[in-house]
Amino acid sequence: MSVSTVSQYSAAPAILPAASGMRGVLSDAFWRRPKLLLLLMLLPPVLWLGIIYIGSLFALLLQSFFSIDEFSGLINREFTLKTYGDLFQAANLDIILRTVTMAATVTLASAVIAFPIAYYAARYARGRWKALFYLAVMLPLWSSYLVKIYAWKLILAKEGILTWLFAKLNLLWLLDAWLSLPVVGGNSLSVSFTGTFIVFVYVWLPFMILPMQAALERVPGNLIEASADLGASPGQTFRNVLLPLALPGIVAGSIFTFSLTLGDYIIPQVIGTSRLFIGQAVYTQQGTAGNIPLAAAFAVVPIVIMGLYLWMAKRMGAFDAL
């Protein structure tokens, strides 16, 4: 009661007395200065991500300007562009070109396989079916990455289910003919680029379906009908109406498939030939070779490629579909 009698003139009657105790004082202070609370809330996450993540990225960039002493194997901490120059050796350019080609074909193939699923889910599935479709894409997306690769090791092995299936269908000659082709073939599917390609498509496919479906949901159904009413064949409708409207979604999905393929080193290591991809080059350079500067320079390559890719994607309006 003492508070109200003392502050009879200063406090308006509708306002509660000032809160007491540490908690109350703090609450009042934050309520009066929301900026202060905001700052305190942002501080821990920004510090964590800023120091650990952005700091590490800078460390990476810094390392890529160091070089390795070829005789002692020690890292020479002086600014040089020599390590970046090493990237342009024929062997290293090969690695970069191989990875980019793989990323591009994987992206195209995922778009082709993803489209029917995304289109069906967006336009025809309703209610229960829609939820089911959603889960059918989510579960493979979230199942263990290594287990998915392991499953394909089982499937693609010479004694595995795929060879068995080809034998049952009397198509072994076809498999053998494919495997005897120069670049895409090999001793068995599990040690060929074809195998690497299939597994990449499999593992990244859900990342293509989800944004594609989001974009297709936004295409009004009556536009498709109008196109058909005006005499377009389904093929024409697809090319001139559906595809242009769905393109931002496809580009958004391709950001994932492209970027993930560029940076992956486990799939080509487990299923594929001994020829390296960028990710493997990074891994072996920092591990067995102990050449962290070259590994860092290699890691900058996907960052630059993705930077260009994102810039182009932004111009095509892909970010509205994310």
Binding site: I52, L60, G263, Q286, A296, A299
Partner: peptide, 10 residues
């Protein structure tokens, strides 16, 4: 791999 190598070099 970029997150990985960045942390590794840090």
């Amino acid at each position: 791999i970029i997150t990985g190598i960045a942390l590794r070099s840090a």
